[in-house]
Write a protein that binds this DNA or RNA. Sequence first.
DNA 1: AATATAGGTGTACGCCGTACACCTGTCAAG
DNA 2: CTTGACAGGTGTACGGCGTACACCTATATT
Lengths: 247, 247
Amino acid sequence: MAEQAETLRRTPLSRDRILRAAVALADGAGIESLSMRNLAQDLGVVPMALYKHVANKDELLEGMIDLVVGEIDPPTPDTDWKHGVRQRILSARQVLQRHPWAPLAIESRNMATPAILSYLDSMIGTFRAGGFSVDLAHHVMHAMGSRILGFSQELFDASRRAGRSGTTNPDPPTALPPEIAARFPHVAEIAMAASHDDTSVLGQGCDDQFEFEFAMDLLLNGIERLQQQGWTSSPGRRETSAASHDA
Amino acid sequence: MAEQAETLRRTPLSRDRILRAAVALADGAGIESLSMRNLAQDLGVVPMALYKHVANKDELLEGMIDLVVGEIDPPTPDTDWKHGVRQRILSARQVLQRHPWAPLAIESRNMATPAILSYLDSMIGTFRAGGFSVDLAHHVMHAMGSRILGFSQELFDASRRAGRSGTTNPDPPTALPPEIAARFPHVAEIAMAASHDDTSVLGQGCDDQFEFEFAMDLLLNGIERLQQQGWTSSPGRRETSAASHDA
DNA sequence: AATATAGGTGTACGCCGTACACCTGTCAAG
DNA sequence: CTTGACAGGTGTACGGCGTACACCTATATT
């Protein structure tokens, strides 16, 4: 009877249950805590049990990525390509912000997962439906790069670390240590300006969302201009980029 | 005398020698082969000997990154900002192509190394000298993102793998397997067009260098336009991106 | 000649992914 | 009702990892 109770107490393992637990573990404790052993423990099971449902850790990661990418909103029908793409990317961004480990996990694997391929495919579809040539759609996808997936890796990030460890971000502005400010005056200047973000006249400090949209719109506007002027890949001057290297 | 010979035969360890050997190992055998044990073996030394010169593996990585970033050409004096930035970035790209493990290594650490900071600082300096406001320079740096360091991570990459393993890239065009082409028609369409790269009229296929410059120039041209029209951060409509979300 | 110090060595610990043999409960066929 | 296959959880073990810590040994200094 104790045995029956125990048997009933935990739902039997399944690939889906494993993937969800893995995502939760990575979200909560950071990707570096995601080991087969830790994951098994969270599921009340012995490590090798997982291998009855996933081939190996790499396949586990792949499944996790697909789960996450599947959270991105489907395309909005009946909008022009620009707003359609914009909304989709912002949705992707929201999703990947819930799973801070995902950008690195995605970047570090060498082949796209099915869910990513499907996402990319539908975005290309949006461009094509908006009148883009195959070529322009191709180059545009490259140009948007990882921003298409809602992330632009920041070089000095500080957020991508572990999951909730008590307080979320209790750092005071942390003006850079003076010896660093001296060595890198321009970096310091920007950091200084950005830390005056008491909604001063010139800015929202270093507001991630703002920076993201700034770059995305810069690209989208440039793309729109190319498309409106009927861009084709100007076979004549192939050594220079076709994005109207104007000067 | 055998002892003397042995003592003389190998230069004594040094931080620099270790870092260079580590870079060589990562270049040649892939970053996943870079273990303290392998590295020590390459140097004819016992693993723990390394720890007399580097604190731990993380610091080793940091040193490797700084070594690599130090290979980037210094800024060209007496050019306008646009060409100055362009050249510097193309130099960075060349460097990082020699060290395919570096982009991921850079992205996966959470704090910038001194050499990276110094590189970023001098690039901000170029923008400032070109008449950019602190704010605009700030946003522009974010917008360029990792392209500033010469890489834009490709989602389906295939190159970032191991180092030279005999033949470099003997793959025939590898038209995607038909069941994938069926599921992702737009991806297939692009892949199809790109594989007709027998210098057909519309393109150089999927030429990495072309894609990189295309995106870079798209950004640089958009930035130039912002700067010429005296961009300021339009405090009025803060919920929308300042990169003239025009429509 | 005595001693401090820098730098290479050897052993050992705890973590990791996972191969492989094993057990056990369920369910279909005889 | 028995039997046997099979799906799925278990236990043990192996090789690799980063690295703590005690040790040895040349060289340099007093």
